[in-house]
């Protein structure tokens, strides 16, 4: 099955029902994308398909292969220089960090379609769970990232 991941075309041999998340982690070694719930509730597995956020734990790889270009946290930038990553670094958003790849991808996905989100937009769009509780800094980080795009 062919996939385009982070700009590279890859061919994976895998059961077509395997969720994209597990193909990324186990076939492609892209472990930045995390498993948190498996039912699209927590957002730790968020990646982009054609620039839009998708919760990869519930997308079968067969569907993903038809959807378009997949970007993971490893492909968001080469060096952590994406505006969201810069903002996250500047104000130390992460705590344990486990949810942050998904959080960053969700935020970057929102900014792709809405470069200037209001607090209400953020409330509606960003529904990822962070148990350490970085939510206040996530909001600050989004507003900071807007200024860096």
């Amino acid at each position: 099955m062919k996939l385009t991941v982070n700009g590279n075309e890859v061919d994976v041999e895998v059961d077509e029902n395997t969720p994209l998340l597990w193909v990324l982690r186990e076939q492609l070694g892209l472990t930045g994308t995390k498993y948190g719930c498996g039912i699209a509730q927590c957002g730790a597995c968020t990646v982009h398909v054609n620039g839009q956020s998708v919760r990869s734990c519930v997308v079968p790889v067969s569907a993903a292969s038809q959807m378009g270009e997949i970007t993971t946290i490893e492909g968001l930038s080469d060096d952590g220089s994406h505006p969201v990553q810069q903002a996250w670094q500047e104000i130390d958003v992460p705590q344990c960090g486990f949810c942050q790849p998904g959080m960053i991808m969700a935020v970057a996905g929102m900014l792709n379609s809405n470069p200037n989100p209001t607090d209400e937009d953020i409330d509606a769009e960003i529904t990822n769970i962070c148990r350490c509780g970085t939510l206040a800094r996530v909001r600050k980080g989004i507003h900071l990232a807007k200024t860096k795009a």
């Binding site: 892209l30 472990t31 930045g32 994308t33 995390k34 498993y35 993971t72 946290i73 490893e74 930038s77 060096d79 952590g80 990553q85 996250w88 670094q89 130390d92 958003v93 992460p94 960090g97 486990f98 942050q100 790849p101 960053i104």
Partner: peptide, 17 residues
């Protein structure tokens, strides 16, 4: 700033899983 932030924003941080 925290010493562990750079890897936590790029997906490089290796967790147990």
């Amino acid at each position: 700033l925290r010493l562990d932030t750079p890897d936590k924003i790029t997906g490089k941080q290796v967790f147990g899983s």
